[in-house]
Amino acid sequence: MKRSGVSQRMLLSVVAGVAAVGVGERVSFGQEAMYTNAATMPVAGALMFRPQAFVSQYGADPDGPSTRTTFYTMDLGVQIGLALAWSLNIQAPLEYVDTNAPLAAGGGDHEVAVESVDFTFKHRFFMENNGTIDTMRAAVIFGGRVDTKDGVNVDPHVGVVFTKVHGLHGVNLEADYMMTTGGIEDRLANIQGGDGTADLFRFNASYVYRFWPETFTSTSTGAWYVTAELNTLMETNGDTELRWSPGIMYEGRVVSFEAMLQLPVANWLDQRPELDWSVGMGLRILF
């Protein structure tokens, strides 16, 4: 297992990414962008089903023959309101991974797997509703990822989330640390941030702007938002990524829709391929 201390460039990235967010466990509810948590949750007894589909293309393996790796991911998530200010999110990504490599090097490969199931509890410990629309909330998130990529390991994670909504504007900030207890060897083509043996720190920030309706009325039942996220992935092996994720979202009373593009801003990667691009679409259905 390879581990290293926090490098200077990682610290610089923290400073640079002050407004950033990450590819966290996507525990979501109202007025929340696709990759960043918010301190919101369904009421006790309610359940939200959130299927999401992603296609993510990565570049060449830094240490191997592959020239391109594409992940097709169907992420099945359920969030359950447990009690006052508590919720539980369960998430299981189903992945199809397609790796391209020259024939001379053995050609490409592909695999299908449900390689992890994540359980995340969220507890809102602060709430201040200071206007009909306006609110500030903070929550702690903690749980574990049951990782079956190489044996069965439980990777605990803990973090905090802050949400502020003011009129048409919303901001979410999330910081989360996951301690990897297993993981597959680094320097493979088919791993993403957090899949290897290093611990993972995620820092995510999202800005959500409601562009329709400009003003809610007594008959309003839905709203359209544009979103912009900064997603930071920092691993203790030194690998660091900063991504930008613009998107659009419709939020209804029961059914919501979201679509986002994710692009790299800066990469410092030695152990895994660099992200070229990623697109994601999802639904949220509240029962």
């Binding site: 206007g131 003011h166 009129g167 504007h169 919303g170 901001v171 800005y207 930008w244």
Partner: peptide, 26 residues
């Protein structure tokens, strides 16, 4: 994209401060 990120960051910083004159306090 870094430039775009800066713009997005500026939106984040400025977003809640703008608010179109809306007031958020009970």
């Amino acid at each position: 994209l870094t430039a775009a990120m800066v713009v997005a960051g500026a939106m984040m910083v400025g977003g809640c401060a703008g608010g179109g004159g809306q007031v958020g306090r009970a």
